[in-house]
């Protein structure tokens, strides 16, 4: 799927992927979504090298500055060009926090979402397709759905924080732990949804046909089943990304997340809620960033789904 954004233009015969790309290009929402996602990814990757203020640096004399655009309607607003997005209650720069926070949130969101999808889809497909494994795998899913998340987190932290910290540093170790925890605790809905669809699909005529010509299970799954469950997976991916970004902030609230001075979008949003009447921009900026990211992934997913559906593509 990664080669979609970077198509290899083959000449003859007209490649299937080329027509997918052609269809994808016609989807305005998908192009905008993709473009915005590329923009935001570049911004959080390169931004901190251009806007070099340290996001953790406190500038207590310049605390509670408003964003520069507030000066347009409120000439008395406390603003400064040195901090175009304002500062928080300890004088940390809003823009550099947004950039640094985006880096972490995007990394956590994507990694956790891909892990969730990976586990969820595999379990769902295997359980749906192989009757023998259905029972055990679904009971395992029930077990994971029943586990209380907070004790699980605390156990994971107790057991793994020290070794991970020793090997990957305090932030790197925490990143792995958080991604793993979100992945492990949120794959179950995807698995059950995919399994439900597979159960119905595998009884369809085209699967029967594939089977009867001796196609092996692996190939049936890859060629015939997976493309047909792509749309619920896309929805899970979109919702999963949003959920992962938010869950990360809930984890740091429970004291399991990144060190407290390490910005993320979710944490910025959570910290700002108390003061949302006086400083609405502090909730708006991370909130908009999360929403737009999720929206663009959603449109991207829509475009991909349409492009991959031969029935739509043909028209």
């Amino acid at each position: 799927m990664t080669d979609l954004s970077n198509p290899v233009p083959l000449t003859k015969p007209r490649s299937q992927w080329l027509s997918v790309w052609d269809q994808f290009k016609q989807h305005k929402g998908a192009l905008m979504g993709g473009g915005f996602l590329a923009f935001i990814t570049l911004a959080v990757l390169i931004g901190p090298y251009i806007w070099t203020l340290d996001p953790q640096k406190l500038d207590i004399r310049n605390k509670d500055l408003r964003p520069i655009f507030n000066a347009i309607w409120d000439s008395d607003a406390k603003v400064s060009w040195a901090h175009p997005f304002g500062t928080d209650n300890l004088g940390r720069d809003g823009l550099s926090n947004l950039l640094a926070g985006g880096r972490t949130s995007m990394a956590v969101g994507w990694a956790a979402m891909l892990l969730t999808l990976g586990i969820g889809t595999s379990v769902g497909v295997i359980a749906g397709f192989f009757k023998k494994l259905d029972g055990p795998l679904m009971r395992l899913t029930d077990l994971f759905l029943s586990l209380p998340i907070l004790p699980l987190l605390l156990v994971a932290v107790t057991l793994f924080r020290q070794p991970l910290r020793a090997n990957f540093g305090p932030e790197g170790g925490m990143f792995i732990l958080i991604v793993a925890i979100i992945g492990i605790t949120s794959w179950m809905p995807t698995a059950r949804i995919v399994r439900g669809d597979i159960l119905a699909l595998k009884e369809r005529e085209f699967v029967l046909a594939a089977r009867s010509i001796g196609t092996r299970p692996g190939a049936i799954i890859r060629r015939h089943l997976l493309p047909n469950v792509i749309s619920p997976i896309m929805v899970s991916a979109t919702l999963g990304l949003a959920a992962a970004i938010i869950t990360e902030s809930a984890l740091s609230f429970l004291g399991v997340g990144f060190p407290s001075d390490f910005p993320t979008w979710g944490k910025m949003l959570a910290d700002a809620v108390q003061r949302m009447e006086e400083f609405p921009e502090r909730v708006m900026l991370p909130g908009i960033a999360i929403s737009l990211t999720v929206l663009s992934v959603n449109y991207l997913g829509d475009g991909l789904r349409d492009a991959l559906d031969p029935r739509i593509r043909g028209r």
Partner: peptide, 17 residues
């Protein structure tokens, strides 16, 4: 699409207050 996705991206600890 817009309303539901924005609604889902904004956590209840924000919408509630």
């Amino acid at each position: 699409t817009f309303v539901t996705m924005v609604g889902f991206s904004i956590p209840p600890f924000f919408t509630g207050p």
